[in-house]
Structures are given as C-alpha cells and as structure tokens.
Nucleic acid binder design. Structure first.
Lengths: 215, 215, 215, 215
DNA sequence: AATGAATGAGCGTTCATTCAT
DNA sequence: TATGAATGAACGCTCATTCAT
C-alpha cells in the first residue's frame, strides 16, 4: 500500500476507494500516459492537493492502482479454481475458456498491453505482474497434473507457461475492437483443444532436465 | 511519409535519417510516452525549430517512426521467405524459430508492447500493425499449405493467426529481461514442434465453414 | 467571470485583482497582440503556472479583462446620468463633453481601437462592446427626448447612434498623441453645438418610418 | 519602398506584386496580428527564405503593404474629385456618400480599425495614415469652400476634419457585419444633410481664430 | 531569384508537486 | 481531511530571421 492518507475515518476510506475507482476507469479509458494526477482529482471531484494527501506521488498511486486491478483478476482466478468440475478435461477447458473470453472484454484488452509496457520499464510492476501470472499458472499446473499425472513439475510448469503466454498473445489480435475479433470462437476452440491434446500426449524430453541454459 | 522537410540536399537527408534513428533509439529506451519533440531534437543535436521543419507535429514523426521500424521487420520477413529451404517442415521451423528468437532481443521486447498499446488507441497505427502482421502471416499460410495441402484457406489462415498470436504472447514472458527468459529454448521447441504436429494432423472441423459468427 | 481560481482567501483575491490590473496596464501599453500570458505573469510577479490557475486560457483572461475595463466605462456613464443638471441642454453638453474629453486620455485613445479590432473578429467581444455602447446611448436617448419631446423612439435612437458614432470617430484624430489634438476644443464645441441644434430642429422624415431596409 | 528584392527582372516584379496581393488578402481576412511571414510565404507559394529576400523584416513588409492599400484609397479619392459634378451641394453629397458607403464594405470595415491600432503604436504608420486622410480632407475643404465661400481656411479645415472624423466613427457601428448595419441609410442621410446645412449656415466663431490653444 | 536548412526565443498550456490554511 | 494557492519545468508548436546553396 503506497497510500499515505491513513484513511482511518469513514470519509477517508470512501475517498481512498473513490480515487482507485476513478483512476481505474481513467486508466482503462485513456491509458497510462494520460492518467494524470489532475485528471484523477478532477474526475474524483477533489482538489489536486487532497489527492496528494492520499498519494504523494503519481508513482504511488499507479502502484496501488495496478495492485487493485490485478487483485481483481486474482480473485477471478480463485473463483475459477473453486468452481472446478470433477472432470479434469472440463476443468482445463473452463479455465482457458474463461481467460480467452475475458481477453475480449474492453477492459482486459486495454489493460494488459498497458501493464506489459509498464512492466518493461519498472521492476516493481514487473514483479506484481509476475505474481499475478504465477497465481494463474498455479491453477493451470494443477489441472495439467490431473490430466497427465506422469509429467514432472518442470514439464507441467513449462506447459502452463507456454499455454498462458499463447493465450495472452491473442489479446492483440482478437481482443475488443481488434481486427480478428470475428474469428475468436474458432481460434479459442482450436487453441484449447490442441493444448489439451498436447498436455495429454506430451512426455518428458529425452534425457533432458530443461535447465541447461538459454538459447 | 509525414515528413515535410524535403531533404533534397545531402545535409537534409542526413538530418532526416538522424531524426528517425535517434527517435527509434529513444522510443526503444524510454517508450512512447517519453518520446518528446524536445528530447529528440536534443539527442539529435538540433533545435526544436528544425525538428519541426522536418516533422510539423509529433504525430507525424511518430507515424513515420513506426512505419520505419515496422518496415524493418517486414524486410526481415521477406528475407525469411527468400531463404526458405526446400523442406516444408524446415521452413516452418525456420520461420517460427526466427520470430521466437527475435522476440528475445531488447528492441523487439520493448517495441511490440508499445505498438500494441498505441494500436489500441489509434486506428492508423492499428492499420499499419495489421498490415505488418498480415505480411508475416502470409508467409506462414504458404508454409502451412506446403505441409498440409488439404487444408482450406480459412483453416490455414486461422492456424497462421493462432500460431503467430501464440508466439507474440511469449514476448511478455520470455522476452529480454523478462522473468522466464531462461526457459526460452524449451518453450520454443515445445511450441514449434507441437504446432507443426497440429498443422500436419488438423483437419477441417466437421461440417463447419468457420463463418457462422462470433462467440 | 472566466476565472477559475476561486480567490476565496485574501491572498487569492489580491492575486486575482493584481492579474487584472497588470493585464489592463499591459493591454493599454502594448496592445492586445503583445498581451501574452507569460508577460502578464512576469509583470505580476507570479509563475505562468499560477496565472493558468486563475485563467486556464488566454481567451478567458482577455474576456475578463475587457469586461473589467468596459465595466469601468459603464460605471462612468452611470455617474454621468446621476450628476445630470436640470437643464436639458446642459445635460446634453455635459454628456457629450465628457465623452469627448475622455477620448483624449491615453487609456481611451489606446483602448477603444483595440476593442474595435477585436470586435471585428470575435462575436462575444462584439456583444460586450455593443452592450456598453447601448448603455451609453440609452442616456443620450433620454436627454434627446428631454430636448425634443416630439421625436419618435426610432428617431431618437438614430440620432443617439449617429451622435455617438461621430464622437467615437474623433478618437483617431484628436485622441492622445494624435495629430489634430490641438484642435480638440474647437472640434468639440463645433460638434456638440451642431448636434444640439440638430436635435432641436430635426423632425420625422416625411412619411417615413425608417424601416424600409438598407441601401 | 521597404522592399530590397530589386525586382528588376520580370519574374521578380511579378513576385513582388504577388506578395503584396497575398499579404493584403491575409491582412483583411485575419488582421495584422495573424499576418506572419510564414503564412504570407505559404499563401504566395514561396519559401520563407525567398520572402525574406524581398522583405528582410516583417515591419518592412507591413510598411509596404499599408502604403499599397492606402494608395488604393487615395486613388479612389482622386477619382472622386475628377467625377465631381458642377453643383457644389451634389459634390458634397457625392464625396461623403461614397465614403459612407465604402465603410460598409468588408475590406474597409476590417482594414481601418487595424490601421488605427497600428497608428497608435507606430509613428511611421501614423504619418502615412495622416497623409491619406489629409488628401481626403483636401477634397472636402475645396467642396466646403464652394458651398460657403465666406469661411476662413481654418474654419473649412476644422469642418472637414470634424465631418470626416464623424463618418469614420460610423465604421464601428454600421460597417460590414456590425450590429447597426440596417440603419445605414437613415444614418447616412441624416448625417450628410445636416452636415451640409452646417457648412452652409456656420459662420466664424465670434472674434476667434481658433488657434488659442488646446483644451 | 529562389529554396532548403537551421536557429533560438517565445508562445499557451499542462504537469507533478508543495505548502499554508 | 480537505482546499486554495503557488512553483517551475516541460510540453508541442510557431515565429522572425539567417544563411548556404
């Protein structure tokens, strides 16, 4: 929590919440580079001075904001896990299907590329992002383990990473307002079924531990 | 070409080139939001007024800059096609391998997410980006056709789109400085080999033409 | 009021006033085209940022400034009316004499031509100017009515317009620093006595209502 | 002539003329403060560098431009004199009628207030303006002398000044696009007929020579 | 006689931030 | 907890002007 306004009183807590909600909306609508302190203050109906009371610097606000949005996604992943059906295949389809559908929402299509850009320039943001994705992949690893119990941890984790990265990549092509949006359903089915087969049929690489370095 | 400085003299041509090169470097280093006219002018050792002589507005400069960088990638794709070996499988591996490796360079890792963000907010940029990816997918479609000649155009194009989107997604995870960079080789092989299998084994969806609408 | 700085504290009120006073002085001294935000800020001993806090745009400031100066003139007209003597002829001489003398002050000589130019290009300014002149002519119409009660409203209003326009025209010739300034007294007397006679002796145009259109 | 481009060749002369014509149009359309070297150059289809060849500074160009426009008006006054009828009253009506009508044209309504503003800040411009008006008043003085031969030179000159100043003042009220334009005809007739009467009936001020000083 | 190329100051405006109230 | 008031740097851009070609 980067906020310094202690928000001990009820009004303070409300204000703190209002700031985050307003900032979130502005971030989604216009992107990080147009998210200025003044705009947030104005949209939240407060003075820039008071906004500075809660967040002394723009970086602090941005940090809390990203945390806030990311927490929302993490909460969704948890829901996902809880709702898991008995059938492992169906769990796999449900998780990936959810993420694939979500990436078509306006919010997600706009939010994640901004996040990727920020993570490229800011280590703290990169960390938070990685934490979020790790949480998501943990679910994937579990499901993959159910489907193919013979896989090593490394293999499961590589598969989860590859699958999640592949899906994320579709944001740019079939996301909200993106040019290949009409192919969403076909691509989603193709992708999920292929990866399901891959998980089922993959085996350990011959004599490899996969840790011998980089390309 | 959004430039108005005609660059007819030798010095003018040099200046025009210097602007693009400097702008490219700054864009990669600091991102679009810190790419200001004044910074470019300063870094290129010229006055703001002279920069404005070449590019009347920042948008013009950005447009030319993106075009310039994108053209570089397009040229690489063309080289790729020209260097194609006789073996279809090897062509497939060469093309995807190249893109996968390239996404690990500092330039590409930093550039593309910025491009995706800009494309989300600017139609012209979205168009240029789509043009570039279309060119790249055209190569993929050809190679896929060689590998599995029975696929319909729609199917090939869907496969190319899915494959390229999946690879792009890895930028954020195994790109330059990204946390899973050490797994690059494993992920690359996993991805490429299994997409190759997919291309070989996939068939038309039963009784579908893939055009029945969206999800 | 185009000002956004609320000027609720004492220091804010002082600043707001200082801005108008400084702007007024600069406008008179150098004219509208040299009245820049930065110059005003500098002359008022404040930062450009703070000036923008009070007036977000130059147009806002200019609007308030003109209003401010015009209000000063309107207040003078009201004083004029209040100080009216009993004798109608004397009232006529007093009102026109005042305006004629005022046009010889440095401020008025410099201000009004600028106002005319601005009114030629900006409707809002044209409106404010017309409001001011209307207020002044209303006084004239009253006095004219006292002198010659038989005149129709239209006739009185035409006479007031013609008389005031004629006097305004002298600004350019006998105003402060203008070449015919030494003839001021003669011209003033000639003009006023002539117009007084005109008001007394004029009658309705034969069979006309004066509304038949334009030339 | 402030121009330095010698304009000795035919093409040079054409260019010099084109500059003045373009500058004139821009001046009328947008006023002096928006008359920039770059705009003129662009509108004239030449480079700023070449414009500077003809007019090294903006002030030089403005000087020539004003001279050029003023010369046009002077030429009109000369035509006026040449076309004079035999009847003195009719001459008077013709001259004033022409000026009054002219002040309703878009060009004149926009040009003169700009000229007055410039004359307030620049002595050279004030001089040129005065020269023009003097030429115009010379005609008026002649006509007034025909109508009332008993008037002294001083008296005639005061009358001419007063009459011309009065008419000029109407520019702001009944000029092109000005709010009282519909009353033009009435005001014009009122003004001219009563000035004619004034000229006929006025006599020397009792025992005065009008030179005793200023107000 | 003309263009291309460049400068550097200045413009209006927005910004993150600070601090007294 | 909140606003009002202020700073100073930076932004994109336009300008008159200069000078080599």
């Amino acid at each position: 929590m980067r906020r310094t306004g202690t928000a001990t009183y009820a009004t303070g807590q409300e204000t703190a919440q209002r700031i985050l909600d307003v900032a979130r909306r502005l971030f989604m609508e216009e992107g990080h580079s147009k998210l200025t302190m003044r705009r947030i203050a104005k949209a939240a109906g407060m003075s820039p001075g008071n906004l500075s009371y809660y967040y002394p610097t723009r970086a602090d606000l941005l940090a809390d904001l990203l945390q806030y949005v990311i927490d929302g996604y993490i909460r969704q992943f948890e829901t996902l896990r809880d709702e898991a059906s008995d059938d492992a295949d169906e769990q796999f389809r449900a998780v990936l299907g959810f993420v694939f559908n979500d990436l078509g929402t306006r919010e997600t299509t706009l939010f994640f590329p901004e996040l990727w850009v920020l993570a490229n320039r800011d280590d703290w943001i990169a960390q938070q992002m990685e934490k979020m994705y790790a949480q998501y992949r943990a679910i994937l690893v579990d499901v993959i383990g159910l489907i193919n119990p013979q896989l090593s941890e490394t293999r499961k984790s590589d598969l989860a990473l590859m699958i999640s990265a592949s899906i994320e990549g579709h944001t740019v092509f079939v996301g909200h307002g993106r040019p290949h949006r009409p192919r969403t359903r076909q691509l989603r089915d193709l992708l999920i079924e292929h990866f399901l087969r891959l998980v089922k049929e993959t085996s350990e690489p011959r004599g490899a531990n996969g840790n011998r370095g980089q390309t």
